[in-house]
Amino acid sequence: MSNLELEELLDAIHMYARDDSSSEPAIMLSANIHGINQAYKYQWLLRMNNNAELVRNDSAGIQLAGKILGIPIKERMTWADFGWDLAEYCEREGLTMYFLGNEEGIAQKAKDELLKKYPALKIVGTYHGFFKKEGEENQKVLEDINRLKPDILVVGFGMPLQERWILKNRSKLDVGIIMTGGNCFNFLAGTESRAPEWMHKNGLEWLFRFLKEPVRMFDRYIIGNPVFLLRVFRQKLFKRSTSSS
């Protein structure tokens, strides 16, 4: 994971967004408990995490794991906050963006909301995420993105669909850096409510999401969180045993 503070991460994004030396766009992934659990399940996703140019901490659980393992994680940046920080930075530095994902109209609404606060921000295009990821419709999306040549492409299909699409299409995209966004456009558009501030500050946003959608989120949080912590403690015991031998 890229253990960076906000300004360090934004400067790194800028560097990759304007780097013409690479034949392919850079990739920035989001690190959270669900993503790490998915990487245990899919070897291709594990390799993608290991090879990504940037991995942003998106979870209080990752910070907790860092404490357990003795690796301090500098900062947690969820898209609900990070999206606004990124927009401010892009407006200031003249970086262009393209939003791809969510239901019809949500990415456009996210753009509209950001422009209210950052009117000089250049979001050059938006497209919904419910298109066929193969064939003519996929090619149409690629052509639209490449026509506009954004510095930053944000892809919000949900995990691991977004990561698989990025891997398949990375070499065909004329952009600077591709970021995974998950459900970010709903948060930026204001169509999905955030956890109360006290829950956010105490790393309990997962509980808020579970209470809103207990059936859909049961496996992710009630099963996934303990599994993740067990793996972290197992790694700690392994490190302790190897250091003492």
Rank of each mutant, 00 (worst) to 15 (best):
103 E>P: 07
209 R>N: 11
137 E>C: 00
155 V>C: 00
29 L>W: 05
187 F>A: 07
152 I>T: 07
78 T>H: 07
70 G>P: 05
182 G>F: 09
234 R>M: 09
206 W>F: 10
199 M>K: 14
201 K>I: 14
204 L>N: 13
46 L>C: 06
207 L>A: 15
165 W>F: 06
77 M>N: 05
163 E>V: 01
43 Q>F: 10
148 L>D: 05
96 T>G: 11
62 I>Y: 00
15 M>G: 14
100 L>K: 02
109 K>S: 05
43 Q>P: 05
5 E>H: 11
202 N>T: 13
157 F>P: 01
89 Y>C: 05
136 E>V: 14
68 I>K: 00
149 K>V: 14
5 E>Y: 11
65 A>M: 07
184 C>E: 08
111 K>A: 04
107 A>K: 03
111 K>P: 05
200 H>M: 11
51 N>T: 13
117 K>W: 05
209 R>L: 09
121 L>M: 13
117 K>G: 05
214 P>C: 13
52 A>Q: 10
56 R>D: 06
125 G>N: 05
90 C>G: 08
203 G>S: 09
13 I>T: 06
169 N>T: 10
92 R>E: 15
198 W>V: 12
62 I>H: 01
24 E>T: 15
53 E>M: 14
84 W>I: 15
73 I>F: 02
168 K>Q: 06
85 D>I: 06
161 L>Y: 04
167 L>A: 13
171 S>D: 12
27 I>Q: 11
188 L>A: 12
179 M>F: 09
234 R>I: 09
141 V>R: 01
9 L>V: 15
14 H>D: 12
222 I>A: 11
71 I>S: 02
24 E>V: 14
90 C>V: 15
176 G>V: 08
52 A>D: 08
89 Y>E: 03
77 M>Y: 03
104 E>G: 04
126 T>K: 00
143 E>S: 01
28 M>P: 13
160 P>Q: 06
244 S>P: 03
19 D>G: 05
172 K>Y: 01
174 D>A: 09
113 E>K: 15
129 G>H: 01
76 R>T: 01
139 Q>G: 04
68 I>D: 00
14 H>C: 09
134 E>C: 03
149 K>A: 10
66 G>I: 09
87 A>W: 07
173 L>C: 08
90 C>T: 10
32 N>E: 11
199 M>F: 13
117 K>T: 03
237 L>P: 02
195 A>W: 06
69 L>H: 00
20 D>P: 07
125 G>V: 03
230 L>M: 13
61 G>R: 00
77 M>E: 03
191 T>K: 04
225 N>C: 06
139 Q>C: 03
205 E>C: 12
94 G>T: 08
228 F>G: 00
128 H>F: 04
229 L>H: 02
155 V>R: 00
133 K>Q: 02
144 D>R: 01
91 E>M: 14
243 S>R: 07
11 D>N: 13
86 L>Q: 11
73 I>L: 03
49 N>R: 08
215 V>Y: 11
234 R>T: 13
3 N>E: 05
210 F>Q: 12
